[in-house]
Amino acid sequence: MIWLTWRQFRTQTLLAAALLAAAAVYLLITGTQLRHSYNADLLSCHAPNAQYTCMGLLNGLQTQYNGPLNLIELLVMGTPALVGIFWGAPLIAGELERGTHYMAWNQSVTRGRWLAVKLCAIGLASIVTAGLVSLLMTWWASPLDTMSGNRFGTQAFNARNIAPLGYAAFAFVLGVALGLLIRRTLPAMAATLAVFIAVQFLVTVAVRPNVMPSTTTTVPINQTTMSQAARFDRSPQDTGPVAIDLPTPAGAWNLGETPALNSAGRPIQTSEVLTCWSQLLSKGPVVVKGGPPAGFGSLGACLAPLNLHVNISYLPANRYWPLQWIETALYTVLAALLAAFCFRRVRRVS
């Protein structure tokens, strides 16, 4: 049975191996170049008074590799979906569509054993493929991840470390289950893609931010905190709210911020900050990224007597690995439930 599985699956295996080899060569070459540039830029940071030069170099490095980073992340995130579409969906649907299941399931090998060998062998290949792609991606992007400090972003989280292994296991068994239900290959492939994307969206948006308790902190608005602000938005209407993006602890996942609040916890109105805002604009253009850290500092100093603050909800950086394990376990459990359904359903196929 194992030999037969290899014979039927060897074309896909060899194609996947060739694509993995090509990806590994590209990522190893460009990853080495990225590390060389990153280390060279870090050396310039040790020179006296090189703070702003260092920031400019590192920002330039991020900009240079931002295109390849996004493309590779999307390819890694797409690997589990491709596994489900091309390896999972045709596994049983193809047999049923061609009618070869009559011969395959009426030999000395029982349906249960046939399915067990297929799920274990091809499922393991799916997990190994996703794991190797994720390993290469994690290694390649580590300098950029160190600079950005954002490991909780959707693309960064879904394309790194162990999470893609759970995605691949789930996508493969999902394809098998839908193929068993639909009994036609192309519709099963389309349904696999649609359901997998829906589950990924649901888990990313609704489950991941709420699976672990968040931390809420109150950040006062003053010269120190405003010098690190990334954004200051006032409403066009005088009665509208004021939104400020203040920094969270290093490496944390910002789940949300309130508008600027007064000491009573009430959102302030735009009219209350217009005087300070006009004073800031009178001193020239505001520079936040790539420039002096003053940014909105003078605006913060002007607003400090108003005793304003922002409440920030976030997950600390040390929640990253627990989230990776929890999400991987969740998808693994879903895959196990779908596999149990397949074993139950395959006995009834005629």
Rank of each mutant, 00 (worst) to 15 (best):
M1V: 06
I2Y: 15
W3E: 12
L4W: 13
L4N: 05
T5S: 14
Q8I: 04
F9V: 03
F9I: 02
Q12Y: 14
A21P: 00
A21E: 04
A23V: 04
A24I: 02
V25Q: 06
L27R: 00
T30Q: 11
T32K: 05
R35E: 13
R35H: 10
N39K: 08
A40R: 11
D41G: 07
H46M: 14
Y52C: 04
M55N: 13
M55V: 07
L57D: 12
L57F: 14
N59M: 12
Q64V: 02
Y65T: 00
Y65K: 00
Y65M: 00
N66R: 15
G67H: 15
P68C: 06
P68L: 05
L69Q: 15
L71A: 13
L71D: 00
V76I: 02
V76L: 06
V76Y: 11
T79K: 00
L82W: 14
G88Y: 03
E97I: 01
T100L: 10
Y102Q: 08
Y102S: 04
W105G: 00
W105A: 10
W105Q: 10
V109R: 03
T110E: 05
T110Q: 03
R111S: 13
R111P: 02
R111V: 03
G112I: 01
G112S: 08
W114Q: 01
A116F: 09
C120I: 03
C120V: 04
I127A: 15
A130F: 07
A130K: 06
M137F: 11
W139S: 06
A141T: 01
S142G: 01
T146L: 13
G149D: 04
A156F: 13
N158R: 08
I162N: 11
L165F: 07
L165S: 00
A168Q: 11
L174F: 03
A177L: 13
I182N: 13
R184E: 09
P187D: 09
A194Y: 09
I197A: 14
F201D: 12
A206G: 07
A206H: 07
P209H: 06
P213Q: 04
S214H: 13
T216F: 08
V219M: 14
P220C: 05
S227R: 01
R231M: 09
F232N: 12
F232M: 08
S235F: 15
S235W: 15
G240D: 08
L246D: 04
A250G: 07
G251Q: 08
G251Y: 08
L255Y: 11
L255I: 03
L255Q: 12
G256T: 02
T258Y: 13
T258P: 01
L261G: 05
P267E: 00
T270K: 08
T275C: 04
T275G: 03
C276E: 11
Q279I: 01
P285K: 02
V286I: 07
G290T: 06
P293E: 14
A294F: 02
G295C: 12
A304R: 07
N318K: 08
W325M: 14
E327S: 13
E327F: 09
A329T: 09
L330M: 14
Y331W: 15
L337R: 08
F341L: 06
F343V: 00
S350D: 15
S350K: 12
S350N: 15
